[in-house]
Every structure is written in C-alpha cells, then in structure tokens.
Design a protein around this nucleic acid. Sequence first.
RNA 1: GGGCGCAUAGCUCAGCUGGGAGAGCACCUGCCUUACAAGCAGGGGGCCAUAGGUUCAAGUCCUAUUGCGCCCACCA
Length: 886
Amino acid sequence: MSGELAKTYKPGDFEDRIYRTWEESGSFHAETDERKRSFTIVMPPPNITGRLHMGHALDQTLQDVLARWRRMQGRAVLWLPGTDHASIATELKVAGEIREKEGKSKEDLGREEFLKRAWEWKGLYGGKIAEQMRKLGNSCDWRRERFTMDEGCSRAVKEFFVRLYKKGYIYRGNRIINWCPGCMTSLSDVEVEHEDVNGKYWYFRYLGVGGGDIVVATSRPETMFGDVAVAVHPDDVRYKRLIGAKVELPVIGREIPVIADVYPDPDKGTGAVKITPAHDANDFAVGERHNLEKISCIGRDGKMNNLAGKYAGMDRFECRKAWVRELEDAGFLVKTEKRAIPAGTCYRCGAVVEPLLSDQWFVSMSELAKPAAEAARSRKIVHTPERFEKVYLRWLDEIKDWCVSRQLWWGHRIPAYYCGVCGEIIVSAEEPDACPACGSAKLRQDEDVLDTWFSSAIWPFSTLGWPEETADLKYFYPTDVLVTGYDIIFFWVARMAFSGLEVMKDVPFRHVYVHGLVRDAEGRKMSKSLGNGVDPLEIINNYGADALRFTLLSGVTPGNDVRFQTEKLEASRNFANKLWNASRFVIMNLKDENGAFLPVAAAARLRGEDVWILSKADETVREITANMEAFELSLAARKIYELTWNEYCDWYIEFVKSRLYGTDEEDKQSARHVLLRVLRDILRLLHPFMPYITEEIWSFLPRGEEEALLINESWPAGGGISDDGGAARKIELAMEAIRGIRNLRAEAGTAPSKKLRAVILAAPGARRDLEAESEHLKNVARLSEIVFASGREEIPEDAMSAVVAGAEIFIPMDELLDYEAEFERLSRERQRLESETARISAKLSNAGFTGNAPEAVVAAEREKLLKYEDMLAKVTARLGALADKR
RNA sequence: GGGCGCAUAGCUCAGCUGGGAGAGCACCUGCCUUACAAGCAGGGGGCCAUAGGUUCAAGUCCUAUUGCGCCCACCA
C-alpha cells in the first residue's frame, strides 16, 4: 500500500478492498497440515429464506473473532461457511412468491417445476447471503462453502438415514403427530410452540345408557365426533360403579364405554375425561392401553370430515362454535368456564397445530440420546455458559421419538421405496431397480422429505466429506467450538451431538458457546411483524462493519441477550475513529517531510513512560489472551479499548510528544520505536474484533520482519518487559500530579492559557521520583500548563499555597487568587483522608483481618495507611496556614 | 407444575475465581491546545431489589422474599 492513511476514517472507502485482499491472499483457506494444530468451526448455516439479520451478525462475529484469533496463534483454522435449505420456511416463501406473482399454487406447478423454482430461489438468496457475510468480514473458507442440499450433503443424509434404519433406530409408524394445517405437514415436538390462549372449558353431560350420567369437561368440543370412551380413575368413588357401563355421546347418539385408567386426575375438571385417541396424544396413549378404536374427525386441512355429519367440511374452529350451540340448544351443556388453555402453534406459520393420526417416519431416540447426554456429563462437551448444559441434558433425558418426515417437496426426499406388488419397504441410499422380496420393478419412492434439522444434525461431518473417510474429516473433526443461540439447543445442538457420536463415534464439538438474542433498543425481540428489525448491511453502510462488530460484542455477558442501540454503535465508531487518528499521528511522526520513513531505533533506550506503556501493553496481552481462552470476548474487547484510548492515546502519546519534537536524535528514535511497537500490538490485539481498520492501518506502517497482512501476523506473546526501576510508579505519580493540577485549575477557573508557577516540596520520595528523570517534570509542566519554580526552593511552612498530588506539589496561592475555594477543597480532602485513615486503622487493628487475610492484602493496607497519614499531616498543616492568613 | 435468567449512576450495561463501586451515552463547567469537536480537560450522580446467613472482609458465596423476563411440561 502506498500513499497516506486517509485524513478521515471512512470505513466504506476500504472495507471491500481489504476483504478482497484477504480473500485473494488465500488466508481464509485451511489446509490439513500435520505440523499445526487444527481449529475448526462449522458455521451454523443461515436459512436461505432471505437476508441475514442482526442475530446472524452476532453469531458470525463471535465465530470470526475466535477464528481470527486462533489463526493468529498459528492454528490451522477452518471456518466452514454454508447455508441451510430450511425446508418448511423456504417452501412457504417460494410458494408465497409464486402465488403472489403468478396466482398459482405449488400444486398447480407440480413437484418438479416447484423444485426448479426453489433452486432458483436458492441461487439468488444463497448468493446474497454469502455477499452479506463478506461485508461482515467473515474470514471463512469460501472454497469449502456448503449447502445442506448440495450433492455431498444429500448423499450423507441418505447414508445417515439408511444407517439408522439398518440399526433399527428409524421406523415407520401410524401415530399421533403434530400436524400444521397451515404448512400442511407434520412437525416434530420442538417445532411446536406452546402458548396459553383465552379459551373455555365446556362441561357436557353424557347420558348413561341405563342411568348414571357423566359430565365431562373439554376445551375442544369439536373432537367429540372422535370420542371412543370416557375414562375415569379406577379409585374415583364417584365413578367406580360406572366403570364398564356405557354412555351416549350427546346428539350424536353413539355409545361409548366408561373405562378405568390412571390418566384422569380426580381433582381436575369433573374427574372424567373424554377420550379421543385420534386427536390428542394422551388420549392416544389411553387408547393404546385399552385397545380402543382411533376415530379421526378432523382432516389435514383443519376441516371437519364426514364423521362430523352436517359439519363436514367446516373449519374446526367454526365447527366448535356451531357444535356448542347445538349441544346447548339440546340441553347437554352443563356449564361454561372461561380460562386460559394451552395451544400448540407452528413455529413457522403460527397456525394452531392439530394432533393427528398419521403414517410418518420416526427416529427412536432413547438409545441415541444416552451417549449425547453422557458426553456433557463427562465434560467431553462443555457448554459456555455452563447453565445451558442443564437445558441440554434435561431435553435429552426426557427425549421422545423424533418425527422426521415432512409432507413437503423442498428437502431431502426420504430414501424409502415401496413395492407396488408385495408392499415391501426398501430403504436404500441408491434407488433400487427391483424389489428384493418379489422382484417387481414397480417401485415408488416415498413422497415425503426429511425434517430440515435431520440434515443439520450431520452438518459437522457431512461438510467434511462424510461418508468418505477424507483427510479433512480426520484432521478437522471434531470441531473445536460450536457458536449458536440458545434458541436452537434442542433443534440442533443436541441432535448434532447424538448424530456425531453415533456416526463418528466422537463428539461433533468440544465446546458449545451459547449466545443470546439481539433485541431492539426497547428490549423487544426483533421480528418481521413488529418491523423493528435492523438490517446489518444498512448499519455497515453507515458505521462500518468494524463498528457493528464491536458493538455486538461490547458490554455483553455470554448467553444473555443484547440490546441494539445506535448510541453504542456511535461509541464503537468513535473508538475506530480514535484509533485511526492516533495511527495518523504515529505514522506522521515516523516520516520525514518527504514522506520517507525515518529511522527507528532497533532497540530503544527506554524511558519511564516507555516502560510504563510497554508493561501496560504486556499486561493487556496476557489478560486478553486469558479472556479469549475463556470465551470472555466482551471483557477482551473492553481491555483493548482501554489500552488504546485511556493509556496509549490519553497518556503515552501526550508524554512522548515532547521527545518527538525535541532534538535528541537517539531519544526520538526510541520514542518512535515504542510508539510503533505498541501500536502494532494494539492492532494485533484488536484485529479479531475490528479486522478492517486494523488491516488498513497496518498496511501503512513500516515493515520489518512483519507480515504484509495483519491477518497473518502472529498474536502477541507478551512478556519481556521488566520494570525494576519502578518506572510505572513514577509515571503514575506524574499522572497524579497532572490530574491534580488540572483539577485545581478547573476549580479555580484559571484560564487555560495562563501558566501557573509551582514548587515541588522537598519531600524525599516524590520529589526524587519526579526529578529522577526530568522528563517527568517537563511532562507535568507541559500537560498541566504550569511552570516549575526554578531550583529546589523550600516552601515556607506558612506560605500560601495549594496542594496536589499526594501533597507533594505546591502552587503559590497568588497564582490562584481564590483562597476560599482552596480552603474548602483542602477541608474536603482532610475529611476524606481522616475517614480513610480511620477505616484502615480499624481494619489493621482487627486481629481477624491481619490473621486471616493474605499477606499481600495486609501489606497493601499498611502502605496505604502510611501514605494517607503523611498526606493528612501535610494537608492539615497547609490548612492551618491558610486559616491564619485568610 | 418444574427449571433458568435478570434486578448496580438518569438510560443501556460491565464487574472473571469475595479484599477500597466501573464504562458508554445523557447531564454540568471550560476548551476548535497543528492526531482526533466522531475530540480534549474537569465535574456531579449509586444504602449494587428486600430480609437473613457464611466470612476478618459480600455487588461478588448461601437461603428466603418481591418484581420483570425466558425455557420446559400430557391438566381434560
């Protein structure tokens, strides 16, 4: 890169260019390399339904930070990107678009044509998503980009299905499943969201055949057409005598038995429950126990069927109203009770889910779930934050079979074939030519597709080439960390765990880093219906990707939700701007008037502030590295922010200016050396968080041993700085003095341009420290606009003066004029010191404290006490002098 | 019904394994000081939800309570 770092920070001017540079350099690409340790993250593939939202931005930024950091540490980093076909969601979108644009249903188009359209959709949105990921700065390996329905993944899905089938884990059965009348497909349990809706209990009288009526309560009267029994608890004295008798369904007139089962709770409702095995999972279980008929009265479209008589064809909810009215008119309604009733809704379309009896494919989960749970218990899979392990385990421990077939077209078609002659079911990855049982060629493939999450479950290894035993698989599996939101622990995390353990015999990931949701500024969930979603691209256009990334990571706790606020965005952008300008300053000072780099000392002659900033940087390197290891990315981000702004910019650069503008050539070179060295460390530390700006600045720095690209630069190691001479302490004293004098000036209202005279008290410690290197004094003078009195004049005990910096520096009062203000200020100071010394004395005279607290803590308290006592004495003396002269 | 999270400065939130309360924004005062007004310097503002307990020491650990939020669950 030639030329100069632009005057103003405009991320839009360089972000895209930087990204191209990275991509073209091959830095994102991972190769198996036995000399290196691998670090693998497979990206949770975003759905191809549309654009990326803030949740993706957060999710992917976290991954990118980890990937970039590990890459800098020298690991062979594979961050594998991809997208998900999102069966239901995409099918709804595509069908919706066709309906809108062409007025046709998907059935009008037919399966083949519809799939063609869906693939076109994938091509369009898949590409858009990849572009968005690039904008974010994702350092993923595009050469390995995958799609859940690409050839390799499709093959893996079939293979996985066949293997589970052969081991007896997959079966086909006619059972109660969750049916979504909106999407017209079955759903798994986790795809049903539970919410309470305002509803009613209706109490109906079922007339006993030969006396003995029973009143049952129901929230779903329309299912009465499918009733096959009334169940009561065997010990319920109210109904004991009726067990075995028959009752008559109101109006319908059909007779059904009264049965005894432990399912009814005598304390709930009337204690008697109508049993509708075809429309309720519990009733289904009761029906199985008692060998009852299963009568369906509601169809897949959510409408009543012929069994509902005159209500046939009517929507289930319409029917409910009409049917209740009829029952009421006929005198069967005993009472009505308003109350909240639980309703299951489809997580995609929101329709009320209908439990239906249906032929579906299931994965038998109990055995498969055990190793997955065990992996967490034995810490082979570690959750961060830990609490999510409980969530994961609870689900696996109480797992139910997984309905994996979907009555959709967009997805992996189930590799099962039915013989049209003998009815044999053939499950095979390859399409069979003939029925192995009867030899017939009349074979028909199952019409259904698999649950989207079935292919997601094998994502960590299907993307690495499984079922082939590839080198990639061997090298990159198991992956190191899975980054994902807490909302898909069941959908995805747990299922990947059992799939990986079943197929690969090893966990799919060692760590699960769970993050929260991105909410809007008011704390509401971002959603399409609320229209409060924020487009990451728009933010990037206005603030830059770096600011967006930093914002998403700052001030958050792992696993907790983040509020997205523009103020935070501005703060991040301002931080980038600060770094930009500081870098401009540094680069400017590294060059001569012709723009050529000036010599920089190979090894600097370190002065106090150099040692101070270098040790601060070192400390930060150590801390940040530890934070990264522990996934404390937010803490790491804050520390690099503080080092950059509060230490490097606010103090070090200010300290070093006098040297840069001085004449001591060796000293100037030293200053440049440290300035550059620390800036490089800052850029390295910040790079995972703000990759673009750091890379751009890096390109304008002089290059020695350094990499051409920051992305390939190594993570700073830290160490190597020793502060034997107590340089940091002296610098901090100088800082204290500067702050104290500035404070004094501000309170006295002294004009900023007015120079004040000051005198250092001939106190042994501080004076020596401040004078030890006269540069400190100069800096104090320069940065607080004072002039030190010449020589080592003693201040007479009764001189009028103000006191700052641990009572070591005096400013003659005639400079300040406001005696009253200074008197008050010192009084406050005395009060503070008195209460502090009292507090510490009490602490130190407590045998419990001195006996139990660590030695270092006690020693620190002793030191503090001495310091405060000394200060108190001086302040008191000055106060006395002031009072006399006032 | 079970489980979990959150309650800290006006707002949004940090505070890691217990040792003198922090940031950003907002607010007040003064500054366009040749890196930066997207900035600089200074300042005000908090019984860290409540009540107990453990400890020499609690925002930090334990128990209970209150309020808000989330997840799970087969109450007809």
